[in-house]
Design a binder for these strands. Sequence first.
DNA 1: ATACATGTTGGAGC
DNA 2: GGCTCCAACATGTA
Length: 244
Amino acid sequence: MPEGPSIVLLKEALRNFEGQTVLEVSGTAQIDLSELKRKTILSLKSWGKHLLICFNTFFLDIHLMMFGTYRINQRRTTAPRLRIRTKDNEVNFYACRVNLMREDPEEVYDWSADILSKRWSAAKAWKKAKAEPKTLICDVLLDQNIVAGSGNIIKNEALFLSRVHPANRVEQLSAVALKRVLKEVRSFAQDFYAWKKQQVLTRHLKAYGCAQCPRCAIPLHKTPMGKTRRITFFCNNCQKLFKS
DNA sequence: ATACATGTTGGAGC
DNA sequence: GGCTCCAACATGTA
């Protein structure tokens, strides 16, 4: 469920919690939940796939991983990792990772890496990628230090849209091609956000989960690739593999 | 019903 | 040390 855009939507869905005081907190998360009691939620932020619930002297970093879910003003039957109740609202998080952080979120995360942040910097991402010439571009697009919020769908779509083959190493890519990939990561992530909001995301995917290339109609390749062997969809005809 | 997947970490083994 | 593989976590969908 969660790549970066889905976490932005979650953050927006929790808008009503901002400025609210925590009246009740519970859950199976291995943190000291009593810390939160009677504290005021100052803001909600997202960085990549992380949701941040910020208090005065600490914040919660919630990551839904692959299977995490949440309910707002509703409950599942299973026990939540974290439940926060305020005067008007309740949120429940399940199957997620919860960390209590005592640092300043400004210092913890590189906000220029967040593909959905106003502070996203393609130039910085470009430099980080160039510092790893041997890394496959399909791995770069899953690296949260370079493109925080990009996941396997965004990876596949950005490569298809920029016509770059996933098996290229960074050093094989021309400056123009690498720039194009990074541009598509952000612009597709923005489309992902809008489509997900309208619940029409899957019908707009051109590579991920698709059988054939929408450009040339030949069958797409579907194969595990890269360090983590994530399923990768690509067109051998339309996506260029540069010579090394 | 069984299989698979929008994610990440840590450890084993080489 | 670095790389790869694997397990673990745990839920929705087809």
